[in-house]
Amino acid sequence: MKISFSWLKQPSLYGMLIIVALLSLFPFYWMYVIGSSDNSAIATIPPTIVPGNNWPANFAQITEMFNIWTVYRNSFIVAAVTAILQVFTSTLAGFAFAKLRFRGNQALFGVVMVFLMIPLQLGIIPLYLLMSKIGLVDTLAALILPYVVSVFGVFWMRQAMLSNVPSELIDSGAVDGAGFFRIYWSLALPLVRSSAFVLLLFTFLTAWNDFAWPLIITQTPDNFTAQVAVSQLNSANNPSYPSILGGSLLMALPLIAMFIVTAKQFVAGVMDGAVKG
């Protein structure tokens, strides 16, 4: 049995990677191709693969359906606030679970592990009713609150605290008379910075891309997020593919920009998490 992995050697290796890269990038490019063409481009044979010159007109059509800046602002507020608060609650709880000695630590963490298996999406309709009881339907707060805490985040940050924060540090801090919050904030938090950053990115991404919950809890276009806006474009009353795909691209643009800026940390973060997780 003499099978070797010779295909893993160059140049076939680069050939394969280039194909994979094209598959990864093509849909983004094609969003722009169709988004800049006229309506017939979507169904031409052979397919249209060169951008057209209709972008301004299509862009105008998109802006007529919703206010891009409102949508960006909403998505940004929701994603940023959710990410920051979730990182805060997760690092705080993770720190307590990993480093503080108190009765019931183990048991409470066991409870958290059970929570990890609960698919929260199932509670979406009562969550809606709860929001309506407290008068938060159709507000950005309703989009943020359910995601301020995350079971996964607590699990993740506990791991990070366990492997990055030496217990002696806690004791020495306590002996120095620092409060536990100060120990958490100025001693522990800096040591888990990169894990916290990954959680921040992931939460931001997840919040930006969330669809099911914003779809039912937002009602007026003033509170639409990027995903709801795209789904609005994709409706029967709008026969225009260029505006649908162009709009999808527009709504993804901030994330694309964010990714390009943070690509290195993002990749490192994903891989970093994999080893510890």
Binding site: V20, A21, S24, L25, P27, F28, M31, L205, W208, N209, F211, A226, Q227, V230, S231, S248, L249, M251, A252, L255, I256, M258, F259, A263, K264, F266, V267, V270
Partner: peptide, 13 residues
């Protein structure tokens, strides 16, 4: 980075 790129798009898009 390139292979991770699709991960940032929304399911809707």
């Amino acid at each position: 980075s390139v292979i991770l790129f699709p991960f940032i798009t929304s399911t809707v898009a």
